[in-house]
Structures are given as C-alpha cells and as structure tokens.
C-alpha cells in the first residue's frame, strides 16, 4: 500500500493491484484457476457421470475399484494405466484449484495475518498430505478385499 496526497490535501491510500505483472504469484494463480478449471470441467464431470449415471451408486464396490485401478501385485493393463493417470491428474488439479479458491474465500473474511496463515497453513498441510497419500495409493494399486 502506498500513501499519496489527493488534490484536496487529504491523504489517500492506494493498493497495488494483485494481478499485475509485478505480482507473479497472483497472476500465476489466476491463470492456473482458469486452465485447471477448464481441464477439471471435463475430468470431474465425466468422473461423476461414470460413477453415478453409468454405474450407479448402489452398484459401487471395492471390487469395482480394483477392476478400474488394477490390483496390487497384478500386472497393470493399459486400461488400468489410463484410469490411474486420469485420477492422478484430476486429484492434483482439483486439490490445488480448491486450495487456491479457499485461500481467496478465507482471505476475504479473515484479516489478521497470523490467523490467516494458521488456517491456510493447516489446509495446505491437509491438501499436501491427501495429494501424496492419494498419488501413492494410485501408484501401488488397489488391494483386493
């Protein structure tokens, strides 16, 4: 924030716009939201459609997950690979897209710097853990029950 004098003699504070070239992080985050959002429209909506319309909630089972991902210890088919890649990309993009969105919402309502960092730090840790945990699970494959 900079201060300057307006013609009336009063001091006016101006805030540097966030999305200008000078603030690289905000600009990158803004671009990321649009691009990841576009990819996620396809990934997330098709995922929801496959699980809820094609298969149906009542027909979901551990066995179906094993069939899609491939079981641990079994050789991976191309189909398994495609599904794992599809889920991995969707996982990372969705979690980061959501985390950035939440950062914007929290930033609108939480003004204290420390508490903002506390909340966002905790959320980032949770998201980071979920990404690592999820990617590892996709890497090793599903366990048959």
């Amino acid at each position: 924030m900079t201060t300057q004098s307006a013609p009336s003699g009063k001091t006016v504070r101006t805030v540097k716009p966030l999305a200008l070239g000078r603030n690289r992080f905000e600009r990158a985050a803004w671009m990321f939201m649009r691009y990841s959002g576009l990819v996620l429209i396809f990934l997330a909506l098709s995922h929801f459609w496959i699980q809820h319309i094609l298969i149906g909630t009542q027909a979901l089972s551990q066995a179906q997950t094993v069939a899609f991902w491939g079981a641990q210890g079994n050789p991976i088919t191309i189909g398994n690979l495609i599904f794992r890649l599809y889920y991995a990309v969707m996982l990372v993009l969705a979690m980061v897209h959501g985390l950035n969105g939440t950062r914007q919402v929290v930033g609108d309502y939480v003004h204290g710097k420390q508490i903002f960092m506390l909340i966002m730090g905790a959320l980032t840790l949770v998201v980071g853990f979920l990404i690592v945990f999820g990617l590892f699970g996709l890497l090793i494959g599903a366990k048959a029950n």
Binding site: L130, F133, G134, F136
Partner: peptide, 11 residues
Amino acid sequence: VFGMSLASFNP
C-alpha cells in the same frame, strides 16, 4: 480423496 485412498491401504 481420503476415503478412496483406503482402497489401496485398507480395503
């Protein structure tokens, strides 16, 4: 995400 990871760790 947590629930689905269980498929790999705790079926």
